[in-house]
């Protein structure tokens, strides 16, 4: 019950925030945090719960974004239909990659996803008629709900918040469901999971497909917010790695982890970028890289679990002291 009260409280606080904060830059950081938290949530489903590391989640993100952008700019399709198309393509593609890999043990899925993202990036560069290649696609600024484009940041703020809340709730629910238990069982030991009647290949595939769908939705939000998309921006390996990094820092396989990770890293990254300036190109990603190594070596379970354990030991110590 307490968890509900807290979640609602934080949600209410975040909802009220735009009434107070008017600085565009801060709102922008919040919006980015919501977006990346949702994206990390999608990664968490397959990488955290099911333990199948994707290093190409940017591909699904980018597929959603490009489907929507190409649809609206080139074919005049409503972004809502573009969204649906993007999600469907992302899901089908993720199934096509997952199917051969999930029957196997070993790092094949990781290798496939990283290779796939690179291939999609190159195809996007190559297929200029459709994608405008390296130039990228500019979405004309025509505000309106039908176009899913808004003037001002506040509407994006609320859509982003809703996206984060929904995807987090989904993870929360999965964690407590049969599906979530199955994913975790497969992650912990595939032989034992099979012996418990869990069709491991199938469940990994389901997780990958749901994850790809959410990533594609995030991509659509990204392009409708930025109103610009290019291959370097969305298909870069760094995009995939950020999703993984946030989840791991916060706590992979916990519903709160990705949100905590995004809430830490996005503001930090934005301030670092502003502070270091253009002169220090590469430094803030280098910083992410070092953080990744350190987290894996020092707190591999992530912040959420580590803090929880600390609180628990503190509590038990207190109890023990009282006993004495």
């Amino acid at each position: 019950m307490k968890r509900w009260v807290w979640s609602l409280f934080i949600l209410a606080l975040l909802s009220a925030l735009p009434l107070v904060v008017e600085t565009q830059f801060y709102l922008h950081i919040f919006i980015l945090t919501f977006l990346y938290a949702s994206f990390a949530n999608s990664w968490n489903l397959i990488g955290g719960y099911a333990g199948q590391l994707s290093l190409g989640h940017a591909a699904f993100f980018g597929i959603g974004a490009y489907a929507c952008a190409i649809g609206s700019v080139k074919f005049g399709i409503s972004p809502f239909i573009g969204l649906a198309i993007g999600v469907i393509i992302a899901v089908l593609v993720s199934a096509a990659i997952g199917y051969p890999c999930f029957r196997l043990r070993g790092p094949f899925y990781t290798l496939s996803t990283i290779a796939f993202a690179e291939v999609v990036r190159l195809l996007t560069l190559y297929w200029r008629d459709l994608t405008e290649g390296a130039v990228g696609i500019l979405i004309p600024f025509k505000p309106g709900v039908a176009n899913l484009i808004f003037s001002g940041k506040v509407p994006y703020y609320y859509i982003g918040l809703a996206m984060m809340a929904l995807s987090t709730f989904l993870c929360y629910h999965v964690e407590r469901s049969r599906f979530g238990y199955y994913l975790v069982a497969v992650r912990e030991d595939e032989d034992a999971a099979e012996a418990c009647g869990i069709r491991s290949a199938r469940y990994k595939l389901y997780a990958a497909m749901i994850s790809a769908a959410i990533a594609a939705v995030c991509g659509v939000f990204y392009v409708q917010y930025m109103l610009f998309i290019d291959p370097e921006g969305v298909f870069n390996l760094n995009v995939s790695i950020q999703a993984a990094l946030m989840t791991i820092i916060g706590g992979a396989g916990t519903w709160l982890g990705p949100v905590v990770g995004a809430a830490l890293l996005i503001p930090l990254g934005e301030f670092l970028r502003g502070w270091l300036g253009g002169a220090a190109r590469g430094l803030h990603m280098a910083f992410y890289g070092i953080v990744l190594i350190v987290v894996v070596m020092v707190i591999p379970q992530g912040i959420v679990v580590t803090v929880k354990n600390l609180l628990k030991t503190k509590a038990t110590r207190k109890v023990e002291e009282e006993r004495r």
Partner: peptide, 28 residues
């Protein structure tokens, strides 16, 4: 196939080298 189908058919097993879901609680 796969092994899961046999579990569902009604064959249970343990492993010589035990394979618990290490990170989960006993109850889970």
């Amino acid at each position: 196939k796969p092994p899961a189908a046999r579990c569902l058919a009604g064959i249970g097993r343990t492993f010589q080298i035990v394979k618990p879901f290490g990170g989960l609680t006993v109850w889970d």
